[in-house]
Structure formats: structure tokens, C-alpha cells
Simulated assay, not measured.
Amino acid sequence: MKYKILVVEDNTEMRENIMEILEISNYEVIGAEDGILGIQAARDFKPDLIVSDVMMPNLDGLGMLKILQQDEALSSTPLIFLSAKTEKDDFRKGMNLGAEDYIVKPFESKDLLEVIEKKLIKYTNLRSQSPTRRLRGVFNESALLKNTTLNRIIESIPASDIGKNSLLWKPDSHNNTVYFLESGIVKEYINSVAGKDFIINFFIGPAIIGIEKIYQQKHETYAEISEHAKIISIPKSSIEELLEQENLLISYHEFTQHLMGNLQERLSINSYGNVREKVCYHLAQLHQLFKGEFIHLSREDLACYCGMAKETLIRMLTELKNDKLIQLTSEGIKVLNIQKINSEY
């Protein structure tokens, strides 16, 4: 079976060159010269993947992406942007909207083909899963925490006191357990090629953590106790049965869009924001997570979360303190003016 690819590019020579590269590589390809024609072509052609320029007349790539994501039949179609180096703000907006990847122009044919192949493999595997299998990893956490059946399960299992720096899971470990974090803080992170940790999430008790991991054949994250925690380990079978019986599932598209949207926004801030923007953005996220109270995280963890060196973070925290935007005490960091912090990024 040939994969179908739509190429949306207003430069005729560029569009035809890309189409030729893809046709030689045994893809079925059609082209469109702007976003309006691209939307119509996508609806008629039903591509497996879209490659699109950002800057185009009539309707640009960002506008096209917004409209495609409102179309139920096309909202999950992966889109790769072609972006000039000078268009970093447009790339950032595109990733926030849900674009799958981007390639900087000019590019080598092999780089384009490699990115396309990876995305097609990823989405083919996702689509091959049955709807029930996909939906089982999707849950409404706020409803789950209030569920009386879950509370009975939690009450029947003794809690374990787990010390700081202990691991709950690591890459490719067996995923047969879901954790109820009664109190304490857990951080989830990945280890980069450069050997530095990048913190994806913080969890503050009470919280349910690890549900999505039990439905993944492979995962690449670590979960580590950041502050002494009380943990209850719940068997996978109990959670699966509970989610299905209690009707606690939400739409797969809604769930993944929420998760990926948050992560893509963070990645774009970390890639293109200056130090002040990065720190203010992450302080705003943590202010919400800690419900407006003191943010009590180590400087090392906060630096990994912001994607910068500890010394750089400390200098910026001092600057924000001098600007009377935050308070620094032995209890942690207190945001004093969340409106001003939000306006900084």
C-alpha cells in the first residue's frame, strides 16, 4: 500500500521538487499552492501526512492547520511544516497548534524522507490499535479522584513511605501498577542525549500517576520521588476495570491534544524564549500546580524543569525578586503578581 502525502507550497519549483522526491520514494503525492487549496485537497485526497510551507498567500500554513484541526476526519492527520530559519515565531505557533514536526529550509532530501518515514510509522501504529485499546489509556482524573470505588480500593491497600530520590519507574520497566500519591512530590523526566535531565511533569499529592504507562508497550521516562512521599500501589487490573465500569473515559483526541499541547508549548518556550520568559512561564505553571501557595522545589529540579543551568536560574530568580514579582524564603518561591508574570512570556 502506498502512503498518500499532500504537499502545500506556494513556490512552484519547490513544490514540484518535493513531489518528485516523494514520488521517486514510492509515495502517492498531490500538491496545492496555498492553504485554501490545501484544505480542499486534504478533504478530497484524505492524505496520510501533510507537508506544508508556513508563509503562503491567501491562507498560510498556520491558518490551514487551525481549520484542519476542526475537521474530525482530518484532525489527527500529521502535518510537518517547512520553515525558514527566520520564521521561528511561526514555528512556535505551529507547534503550539499541534503540528507534528518542522524542517528548516533549505534541507537535504534524506532529511525530509527520514522525518516523513518516522511520522508515518508512528501514526500507522497508532491507527492500528483498536478503539477500545486506545481509549483505555484515557481518563478524567478529577472525576477519578472523587470516585467512591477508587477510594475503597485505596483504603484497602496500605500506604508506603518512600524517601527522596527513590524511583517509581524507569524506561521500559514493567507497567503493571498505577500509583496513588497521597502526599509528597514526584517528578517525571527523561534523560537527554547530552546526559541532562529534562523534567516533563511534577505531581503533587493527592494525585493518580502512571495510568498512561500501563497502556504503552514502551516508554522512556523516569519517575522519581522529589519530596518524601506516601504512595499506594494499585494493580493495573483494578484500574482498568474501574475506568470501564464507572464511565470515566474521555475522548482520545481531547486527551492527547491536551497533553501534547502543553508539552509542545513548553518545548517552544524552552527553544525560543529568553531566560526571563522561560522562568516566568514555568513559574506560572507551578503557581497553578501548587494552588497559589509556596513552590517548594529544589533549585536543581526547578532548573531542569526550566531547561537551564542552576546558576542562570538563580540569577533570574534574584532579578524577579528585585522586581517584586516573587518572594524567596526558606519555604520556597511565592508568586506575588501572577498577572505580571503571565505578561512576561
Rank of each mutant, 00 (worst) to 15 (best):
M1W: 02
V8F: 05
V8N: 12
E9P: 01
D10E: 05
N11M: 11
N11P: 01
N26I: 00
Y27M: 14
E28W: 02
A32V: 03
A32N: 06
D34P: 04
G35Q: 00
L37M: 04
Q40F: 15
A41Y: 04
D44F: 15
D44R: 07
F45Y: 15
D48G: 07
D48A: 05
L49N: 05
V51K: 11
V51E: 04
V54Q: 00
M56Q: 03
M56L: 00
L62C: 03
L65M: 10
I67F: 05
E72N: 01
L74A: 04
P78E: 06
L79V: 10
L79C: 05
L82V: 00
A84T: 01
A84W: 00
K88Q: 05
K88H: 00
D89F: 07
D90F: 10
F91M: 08
K93P: 00
E100N: 09
I103R: 05
I103P: 03
K105I: 00
K105E: 02
F107G: 02
L113M: 10
I116V: 10
E117N: 13
E117V: 00
K119A: 09
K119T: 11
I121D: 03
T124E: 07
R127W: 03
Q129I: 06
Q129C: 09
V138M: 08
N140E: 07
E141I: 13
A143N: 13
L145G: 02
L145F: 01
K146D: 11
N147W: 02
T149R: 14
I154D: 13
S160Q: 07
W169K: 02
P171N: 09
S173K: 01
N175C: 06
N175H: 06
F180P: 03
G184C: 13
I185Y: 10
K187I: 07
K187Y: 02
Y189C: 11
N191M: 13
S192T: 15
A194S: 15
A194E: 15
G195E: 12
D197Y: 09
F198D: 07
N201I: 12
F202S: 02
P206C: 04
I208E: 08
I209L: 12
Y215G: 02
Q216F: 15
Q216E: 12
Q217C: 05
H219T: 08
E220Q: 08
H228K: 15
I231S: 08
I232Q: 14
I232C: 12
I234W: 07
K236M: 15
L242N: 10
N247I: 00
I250E: 01
S251Q: 06
Q257I: 07
H258N: 09
H258L: 13
L259W: 13
L259N: 08
L259I: 05
S268F: 03
S271E: 08
N274D: 15
N274E: 11
V275R: 11
R276V: 15
E277F: 14
E277H: 14
E277A: 14
E277P: 15
K278T: 05
K278P: 12
K278Q: 12
C280I: 06
Y281I: 10
L297T: 08
L302G: 13
C306K: 10
K310Y: 14
K310T: 12
K310L: 11
K310E: 15
I314M: 13
M316S: 12
L317A: 06
T318K: 15
T318I: 01
L320G: 09
L320C: 08
L325C: 01
Q327R: 09
L328M: 09
T329R: 09
N337F: 12
Q339D: 10
K340E: 13
N342F: 13
S343C: 05
S343Q: 06
Y345T: 14
Y345F: 06
